[in-house]
Simulated scan of single mutants.
Amino acid sequence: MQKLFYWPSKNASLSIPLALLLGFGVGLRVDTAFLSSLILVFTFLMIYPTMIGVKLKEAVNLTHGKVVGLSLLINFFMIPFLAWGLGVAFLAEDPTMIAGLAIAGLLPTSGMTISWTMLHKGNVPAAVKMTALSLVIGSIVAPFYLLFMVGQYVPIDLAKTFTTIALIVFLPLLLGHFTFQYLIQKKGPEHFQKIIKPTLPAFSFWAMLVVVFSSISMKAQALLSNPQILLKILVTLLLFYIINFTASTLIARFTLDRPNGIALVYGTVMRNLSIALGLAITAFGPQAALVVTLAFILQVQAAAWYGRIADRYSLLGPNPTSTQDATKVSDKVKNNSNL
Rank of each mutant, 00 (worst) to 15 (best):
S337R: 11
L175F: 13
T163C: 05
M1A: 10
A280E: 03
K121L: 03
I47F: 07
F81P: 01
L35H: 01
Y241L: 03
A207M: 14
I156E: 04
T161L: 04
I297F: 15
A126E: 05
D311K: 08
S13F: 09
V269M: 01
A126N: 08
Q2W: 14
M51P: 00
W7F: 10
A202H: 00
D325P: 00
T199K: 12
K332Q: 14
A102H: 00
A310M: 06
G267A: 02
F44S: 05
G27M: 11
I165P: 01
K232Y: 10
A304T: 06
H191I: 07
A132S: 15
Q193F: 08
P259V: 01
L173G: 11
P259G: 00
F76Q: 02
E93D: 12
A310V: 12
L40A: 15
D325K: 07
T268E: 12
A159R: 02
L147R: 11
L72E: 15
N123E: 11
P201R: 10
P143G: 02
N260D: 15
Q2K: 15
G100Y: 03
G111F: 09
K10V: 06
G261H: 08
I98L: 04
D331M: 13
F76E: 06
L234Q: 05
P286H: 00
N335I: 09
T113N: 12
P95M: 08
M149Q: 15
E93P: 05
N335S: 14
V60W: 15
A104F: 02
A132I: 11
P227L: 07
K66S: 13
A142C: 12
A295E: 02
L294C: 03
Y182P: 07
V26C: 08
F178P: 07
A303G: 15
G317M: 00
A276L: 03
F254R: 07
L294F: 13
P108E: 08
L264C: 01
F76W: 01
I251S: 06
V169M: 09
L146A: 06
I297M: 14
L158R: 00
L209H: 12
I297E: 05
K187D: 13
P17S: 10
S134R: 03
T161F: 07
F180H: 14
I137W: 10
L238R: 07
L316T: 03
N75S: 14
G23P: 10
E58F: 11
K3S: 09
S248F: 00
Q301G: 12
L73T: 11
S37E: 14
R308W: 07
G111E: 07
A247R: 03
M218N: 13
M208H: 07
T131K: 14
T163M: 10
D331G: 09
Y6V: 05
F254Q: 04
P80F: 13
G188W: 04
L22E: 08
G122E: 07
T323F: 15
P49R: 02
L279V: 15
I140G: 06
S225R: 08
A263N: 01
V150F: 03
Q301M: 13
S322P: 02
E190W: 04
V300F: 09
S37G: 11
V128S: 04
I156W: 05
G122S: 11
P189Q: 01
K334M: 09
R271M: 15
L277I: 08
S225C: 07
F162D: 01
Y266Q: 01
P201K: 09
A207P: 02
R312H: 09
A59H: 05
V235D: 13
L56Q: 06
P189W: 05
L56G: 08
V235T: 12
